[in-house]
């Protein structure tokens, strides 16, 4: 191929004036459209930003309103959590107070029934309640085969947050306590105060050395202790009528 031919041939590929004009106008029109789109795009971005801000503000207002309502005194949940000085209102404290004792006495089936060594199986177990007198099984040191009037001391159990009781102390103003192992028969005199386990049975004897019970009303004080602090206290009152029958009742739970 000759140079001139090649160069002339390329003229075949050259654009006409009409084609140049068409291309130019296409470029200009496209740029106008792009400018409009840029403007719209900016406006759309601005609109989206404003909508996002609005939603954020509304959400914040709603959340704050919900929190404020919890702060009102009527709402005990949050109110309680924010009054640490009032221990009884703390959710944890409420669940962990001492629930009370379960004091069991052994009542007589009949007035003439004497307390014997099989009292656990034969006597009627009675959980003592305040202001309710229970006729205890008849007891005299000479006629009974137990060392004293039995009382079983236990604590009320709760599945949730049961307050841990380290020890139970019992004390009496007259007479004394005995600890008796029914299986071995070993009897231990404990005096006027005794530390017992939950569920243990103590025996109060009116005939106790120099401290024989002469009063008509004997008070046994039962205390629950944790960390050297009394967390609950209740009293068993034993009375005896003129016929020599013993009755038992308890007072209210206190500290």
């Amino acid at each position: 191929m000759k140079n001139k031919n090649i160069k002339d041939t390329f003229e075949f590929f050259a654009p006409t004036e009409e084609q140049k004009r068409i291309i130019y106008e296409s470029i200009v029109n496209r740029q106008k459209i792009n400018e409009k789109r840029r403007g719209l795009h900016f406006k759309a971005k601005l609109a989206y930003s404003l909508i996002a801000c609005f939603i954020t503000v509304v959400a914040a207002v709603i959340l704050l309103n919900n929190n404020w309502s919890l702060l009102e005194p009527g709402n005990t949940h949050y109110y309680q959590a924010n009054k640490p000085s009032d221990n009884s209102s703390l959710p944890d404290a409420t669940d962990k107070i001492f629930k009370g004792f379960v004091l069991t006495a052994y009542a007589a089936n009949s007035e003439s029934a004497y307390l014997n060594a099989n009292f656990m199986e034969e006597a009627e177990k009675q959980v003592l309640k305040p202001d309710v007198k229970v006729l205890l099984a008849k007891y005299t040191p000479a006629m009974s085969s137990v060392p004293g009037l039995p009382f079983t001391v236990d604590i009320k159990k709760d599945d949730k947050n049961n307050y841990y009781v380290e020890a139970i102390n019992a004390s009496v103003d007259c007479g004394g306590f005995d600890r008796w192992d029914r299986e071995t028969g070993i009897l231990t005199s404990e005096g006027q105060s005794i530390t017992i386990d939950t569920g243990e049975t103590i025996y109060w004897s009116p005939m106790y050395g120099d401290n024989a019970a002469n009063e008509n009303k004997i008070t046994i004080t039962i205390k629950a202790v944790t960390n050297n602090t009394v967390i609950g206290k209740q009293s068993i009152y034993i009375t005896q009528d003129e016929q020599g029958y013993y009755y038992a009742t308890i007072g209210e739970l206190g500290l």
Partner: peptide, 15 residues
């Protein structure tokens, strides 16, 4: 700019 370069650009594109 367009006038100077449209011919060359078009020819190359057509080629």
């Amino acid at each position: 700019v367009y006038d100077r370069n449209i011919r060359g650009v078009y020819q190359i594109c057509f080629l």
